[in-house]
Amino acid sequence: MLRVEGLKKSYKDFEVLKGIDFEVPKGCIYGFLGKNGAGKTTTMNILTGLIGFNGGNVFYDGKSFKDNKRSILSMIGYVPQDPVFYGYMNAYEYLKFIGGLSGMVELDIKRRSEEVLSIVGLKEAAKRKVGGYSGGMLQRFAIAVALFNRPKMLFLDEPTSSLDPQGRMEILSLIKELKEQGITVFFSTHILNDIERVCDQVTILDKGVVLVSDELKALKDKYIKPIYDIELEEPCEEVAAKIKSLEWVQNVVCHNTMMSVYVSDIEASKTKLLGIMADSGAAVISYSLRKSDLEDIFIRLVNSDENL
C-alpha cells in the first residue's frame, strides 16, 4: 500500500529525517512510535502532502507520490494532532466544503455527511458551530472529515493523546472498525498501550532514524527480554549506577526506590544480580522478574547506541 524509501527531510542544517525506510501493507493498522521530536509528525506531514521532502521516495500502490500527488491525496485521509477548522461553520457546512474540494456531487455530500457523522457520533451536534466543540468532539470531527472522501488509507497523528480514557477507547475501537472496512490505518503515538491494543505492525523512530520496523508479534518475540523490578528501602541511584556498569546489564531505569534492570544475558543475571545487590549493602524490599512489554522494548531501543 505505502512504501517509503530513504526519506530525508532537513530544516536548514538540522536533519529531521535521515533516510527512513518502511513499508505499510494494505488493510493493516500500522503504529508509528517515537519520542517527542523523533520525526513522527514530520513523516506524517510528508506522507500527506503537507510539506515537501529533500530526498528519497514515497510510493502509494506502486505510484510515485512526487508524480501523482493530487490523485494520491484523493485516496488518503489525514487527522492532524491539533485539527483546526473554520470555526464559524457548522459540521454540515464544513463537510460540504470538503466534499466540494474532493469533487463530490451534492447528493453524495449529503448522504456521506450523515454517514460519517453517525460513525463518529456527532449527528446531534452537527448543526452547532465547530468553533464551539470540545477537544474530544474536534478529534472525532477530524476523523469524520478525514473519512469523508472514502480514503483507502487514513493517517492519524497522535489521535488519542489529548483525550480522556473513555475518548481514547472510543477512538481505538473506531480504528479497529476502520480496519474491518478495509481501510489501512497509519497512526503515530507515544502511548504504547494504544499500539499494543490495536496495531498489527510497528515502526519505532528515534532522532530521524528507524530503529525497528516489524510486525508487533515478531517484535515481541524478537525483543522481549526479562526485566528485574527491584524495590529498595533507600533511593536507588547509587546502586543503579553500579549495576549499570555491568557488562550484561543493558539499562537501568531508576525511580526513587524502584529500579528496573534490563539485562542482555539472562543466565548471567540469574546467577549474579542478587549477589551483587547483597554485596552493595542495599536493603532489598522486593525482587521480581517480569517479561517486558512494548514500553520496555521502546525504552531499550531508544536508549541503546546500536540496534538490538
Binding site: L50, K69, R70, P80, V84, F85, Y86, L101, S102, N149
Partner: peptide, 13 residues
Amino acid sequence: SKKLVFPYSKGCS
C-alpha cells in the same frame, strides 16, 4: 492557524 491542513491534505489546488 493551520486551517489549510485539511484542504491541502484533500488535494486542494
